[in-house]
Amino acid sequence: MRQVTIADFKIQTTIVVQWGEMDAYQHVNNVNYVRWGETARVDYFRAMGFIINQEPKKMLYAPILGFQSVKYIAPVVYPDTIVIGTKTDAIKDDRFVLKSYFFSTQQNRLVAIQTHEVVIVDYNKQQKIAIPQAILDEIHQIED
């Protein structure tokens, strides 16, 4: 099986590790991976054409995080730069699953993988809906 590299991703996010992100164990605290993953997820949403910070009443629907998990592979320390590649891993009737792969430029390796399960919410009805065809089209345009 071929190893995943950052070149495998059309959507990439670069994060410069800050000194203050390290914890008492002298490595980046795990909560920062969640924050970095959120930035990567928003970059993916923007590539799909979603306008971030738009007033909800003006949107028909929007992507909302329904579940997330992070697999930590290797610790990161300051100074470093993390490049995150994000792609759609699965599409289901009521959600799509993004995977973000965190690569350390200092270590030249994969250091974490985040899974984001994204549901689509109809803001007017305040409920989850099936994935609209327009979103499926955007995903396919990014991934194909």
Rank of each mutant, 00 (worst) to 15 (best):
A7D: 15
N124P: 06
T88A: 07
Y123R: 13
I120N: 04
M22T: 03
V76D: 13
I84K: 06
I51H: 13
Q141K: 15
V31P: 06
G37R: 02
D43V: 02
A40L: 11
M22I: 02
M59C: 14
L98C: 01
N108S: 08
A134C: 14
F102G: 11
I64V: 07
P79Y: 12
Q114C: 08
K10D: 14
T115G: 08
A74F: 08
W19C: 14
Q68G: 10
I139G: 10
D80H: 09
N53V: 06
R95E: 00
L110Y: 02
M48A: 13
R95I: 01
D137W: 08
R95C: 05
M1S: 13
I52K: 10
V42L: 05
E143Q: 08
I11Y: 06
T105D: 06
G49H: 08
D144E: 15
V42N: 02
Q127W: 06
T88Y: 05
N53D: 13
V77G: 12
V70Y: 13
D137E: 15
P75H: 09
V119P: 06
A112L: 01
I52T: 07
I52P: 13
E55G: 10
V118W: 06
V16A: 08
V97W: 01
G49K: 07
D94Q: 07
V34L: 01
G66F: 00
V76G: 11
K92S: 03
Y78K: 05
Q18H: 14
T105L: 03
V17M: 02
D80A: 14
N30G: 00
S100K: 01
I91S: 04
G20N: 04
Y101T: 00
T86G: 05
H27D: 02
N124Y: 07
V4N: 05
I142S: 09
Y123E: 11
A7R: 13
I142W: 09
E21F: 09
K87Q: 06
A40E: 07
